[in-house]
């Protein structure tokens, strides 16, 4: 292993210092291209089925509360910014600041998840279950898939925090992991932009 980071002297962009790191970042971009298609298919199913509510079942306009969605959006947007700050701290070799920003990101991620669970719980009580209508199924599949991605993201970043703070420290091996996790988190926020636009706001418009 290179000694270049032993005394905390990492190269400027440690995630791109090795070929392996660069390949990980590139590979992750290809994965995100595939994720785009995955979410695109779920969006297309939702778009095709969003008016298929059936008789007497709640419609999008009746269900959605803009205030809840606005809070969830704010949480995820701020968490995207805090993960930017984490990467910037990493580039300055400020490991502690990086870990703190990552911890804030994870806390916000859990806040988002809690809000989404509360929201789904409310919907079920209002008679909007997974199998209620084609609309409800495609809604839960799309938004739930995004929520599952958020859950995976917070678990992933939590493990990274533990690994870096207790065992490995910030090295040219761990830096690409943090960078890639940051990319993943931004991607989750990007998908949410389309979810709040297409699912919630357009659902409200009718």
């Amino acid at each position: 292993m290179s000694a270049s980071h032993v005394e905390g002297k990492l190269p400027h962009e440690p995630e791109k210092a090795t070929l392996e790191g660069r390949n990980k970042v590139l590979g992750f971009w290809l994965f995100l291209g595939g994720e785009t298609v995955l979410f695109g298919t779920l969006f297309s199913a939702f778009l095709a089925l969003r008016h298929q509510v059936g008789d007497g079942n709640p419609t999008a306009d009746e269900l959605f509360k803009l205030s809840t969605v606005a809070i969830a959006t704010a949480i995820l947007l701020v968490s995207s910014l805090t993960s930017v700050f984490a990467i910037q701290a990493m580039h300055r070799n400020q490991v502690k600041a990086m870990l703190n920003w990552l911890i804030i990101t994870v806390i916000l991620g859990f806040g988002f998840l809690g809000l989404e669970i509360y929201e789904f719980y409310e919907y079920v009580h209002e008679g909007h279950k997974f199998s209620t209508s084609a609309f409800s199924t495609s809604f839960y599949t799309l938004v739930g898939f995004h929520g599952a991605h958020v859950l995976f993201g917070v678990l992933w970043i939590t493990l990274l925090i533990i690994q870096i703070s207790t065992k490995k420290g910030l090295t040219v091996v761990t830096a690409p992991k943090v960078y890639v996790a940051g990319m993943y988190w931004h991607f989750i926020d990007v998908v949410w932009v389309f979810i709040f636009t297409v699912v919630y706001l357009m659902g409200k418009v009718g």
């Binding site: 995100l32 595939g34 785009t36 298609v37 695109g40 297309s44």
Partner: peptide, 22 residues
């Protein structure tokens, strides 16, 4: 360049599917 190609390829597929669905 490769990230842009990867994402735009994804977007192309998505637009095709979404327009079809809509």
């Amino acid at each position: 360049l490769y990230p842009i190609i990867a994402i735009l390829t994804g977007v192309f597929v998505v637009l095709t599917i979404v327009v079809m669905a809509e």
